[in-house]
Computed example of a mutant assay.
Amino acid sequence: MDPIALPLLNDESPPPERADAARNRVKILDAAANLFTERNPRTVTMDDIAKAAGVGRGTLYRRYPDVGSIAVALLDQHERELQERLLRGEPPLGPGAPPAQRLGAFYTAMLELLETHANLVLGAETGGARFRTGAYQFWRVHVRALLTESGVAYPEPLVDALLAPLAAEVYQYQRERGLTPAQINAALQHLAGGVIDCAADSSS
């Protein structure tokens, strides 16, 4: 049986939306996505988004309390798809592969997400919000379970260290320095294998 229990997916349908509210939501998300693409997401303000979307501040704040919550909403579908693959997808990303392979596959999938949506991730992590998002807690549970399965005696201190290279700011810095996604992924595969191999050696 796969030891990972990740209860953070919410399969409930959202409440019905009024037509005008739905139109405003789409305008807000589209405007924010464009701004996050054009600029450093950490320089985008709620006023910028309201102006670009053509909605009032009250309309914007009734739905989203801050810029980070808008970035989280934009990321939600992409992260849910990855969560679903971790829960029920094919191995090695999904259940059924050894912990080292699953951790390596998780790194690969996260780098693909960052390569495509790094600006959104950066926006969602504004102001230290990274550690408070449901997605980050989901990744923590997943990595901790893999470490436990591999025999790490005290997995908790390692979890955030293993997730640290996946911070959008770190990834963008590496890309700006000329590192390719393949090079970054190769380094993370070594990291995943090294951690699991050390755990196996210490328990033997």
Results as ranks from 00 to 15, higher is better:
Ala145Ser: 15
Arg144Tyr: 05
Arg80Tyr: 00
Gly151Tyr: 05
Pro92His: 00
Leu191Asn: 12
Leu75Trp: 02
His117Ala: 03
Arg62Ser: 12
Tyr171Met: 04
Ala5Phe: 10
Thr108Cys: 08
Phe131Ser: 15
Ala73Trp: 02
Arg57Pro: 04
Thr148Gly: 09
Asn10Gln: 13
Pro16Ala: 13
Ala118Glu: 08
Met1Trp: 08
Gly128Asp: 02
Leu158His: 14
Arg23Ser: 07
Arg175Leu: 06
Ser204Arg: 15
Tyr171Gly: 01
Gly94Cys: 04
Arg132Thr: 14
His142Arg: 09
Tyr61Thr: 08
Trp139Cys: 04
Ile196Phe: 00
Gly134Leu: 11
Glu112Lys: 15
Pro95His: 06
Arg80Glu: 03
Gln189His: 11
Ala145Asp: 06
Asn10Asp: 15
Leu166Ile: 03
Arg175Thr: 08
Arg85Glu: 09
Gly134Ile: 09
Leu166Tyr: 00
Gly194Leu: 03
Arg85Asn: 01
Ala124Tyr: 00
Ile49Glu: 04
Thr148Val: 14
Tyr171Arg: 05
Leu29Asp: 07
Gln172Arg: 14
Arg102Phe: 02
Arg85Lys: 13
Gly96Pro: 00
Asp160Ile: 10
Asp48Glu: 02
Leu188Arg: 08
Gln172Ile: 11
Thr126Lys: 14
Asp30His: 04
Ala53Cys: 09
Leu86Phe: 06
Glu12Leu: 15
Ala182Phe: 12
Arg132Asp: 13
Phe106His: 10
Thr148Ala: 13
Ser204Thr: 13
Val55Asp: 07
Tyr107Asp: 03
Ala124Gln: 02
Glu125Ser: 14
Tyr173Leu: 14
Arg42Val: 06
Gly104Phe: 01
Ala32Pro: 04
Pro165Gly: 03
Ala105Asn: 01
Ile184Gln: 14
Ala182Asp: 15
Leu93Thr: 05
Leu114Lys: 11
Gln137Phe: 09
Val195Ala: 04
Asn40Lys: 10
Ala167Asn: 12
Thr133Pro: 00
Glu79Leu: 02
Val143Gln: 06
Leu188Ile: 04
Asp2Val: 10
Tyr136Cys: 01
Gly134Lys: 10
Leu86Val: 07
Ala186Lys: 09
Arg130Gln: 11
Tyr154Asp: 14
Met46Arg: 12
Arg25Thr: 11
Gly128Asn: 05
Tyr136Pro: 01
Ala129Lys: 15
Met46Lys: 08
Ala73Leu: 05
Asn119Gln: 15
Ala19Pro: 04
Arg177Tyr: 07
Leu74Phe: 00
Phe138Ser: 09
Leu9Val: 10
Ala129His: 13
